[in-house]
Amino acid sequence: MITVDPVIIALLAIVAVPFVGAIIMGLDRRLTARMQGRVGPPLLQPIYDVLKLLRKEPIVVNRVQVVYACLHLAFMILCVVLLALGQDMLMVLFVLAFSTIALILGGMSVRSPYSRIGSQREIMQMLSYEPILILMMVGIYLINGSFMARDILVSGKPLLLSLPLLFPAFLLVMTIKLQKSPFDFATSHHGHQEIVKGITLEYSGPFLAILEIAHWYETFLLFFIATMFWATSIPVGLLIAAVCFFGVILLDNIVARLTWPWMLRFMWTAGLGLAATNILWLYI
């Protein structure tokens, strides 16, 4: 195997990943539009949006929120870096959690009722998906005997065959993390909702751009994890990611937004149930 300096890999990941994420987001918007019988924006629309936002006036409610926006992005990047370096998957999840918490705290640091409600809902989202993600890593460990990302990628068996129930659970997690219906109550990609824009409401201009870029990284990360379900063959892995992508967007377009108590109940029964059942048979 060719060994490349980890610093170079990390830098490459930092630079390349957001573009991939942006393209995925662009595809998302286009596919959504097609499903609704519309033409939709150009593929590169997310990039235009961010470039525009970066050049807008940096207005704030207080300085604290800026701190959290930067932390959110930085730790999201760190997730990708750790992944690129083939580091421990559990640690990647924890760093991802840090990133999300930074977003939550940023939303709570301003005196906006909408933003605060959004943050609270985001906490509930974390509460419902975090155990499933960790269980997923446990499942991967039980198959591969290692938590390291690099070992997952070189293992000989496709994970999907051993983790068939964790896959739908992960799909639900993905729907939550990508802020799609029926779980898009903390914030939403669509303009209007009952708490306006929820957690990201008080960010504008370049700071909103920071959150958008972080979302690109996050999107990439999630789809990357999806491909890991069939890491032995890259085309099949990509196919799986594509299926996830289509499924999530389809779900987004055909279901209504539901409430967080419903989500908590659903994820702790159905989601966690699926994940735990899958894990259980791996133990036995």
């Binding site: 640091s109 005196r111 974390m126 509460l127 975090e130």
Partner: peptide
């Protein structure tokens, strides 16, 4: 342990969020 760690995050972040809310100074 997994459930416990997820819950831990909830109560700390609620609390931090509460005390740091602030207007521009």
């Amino acid at each position: 342990l997994i459930m416990g760690s997820a819950l831990t995050v909830v109560f700390w972040s609620k609390w931090i969020g509460r005390i740091q809310t602030v207007a521009y100074h």
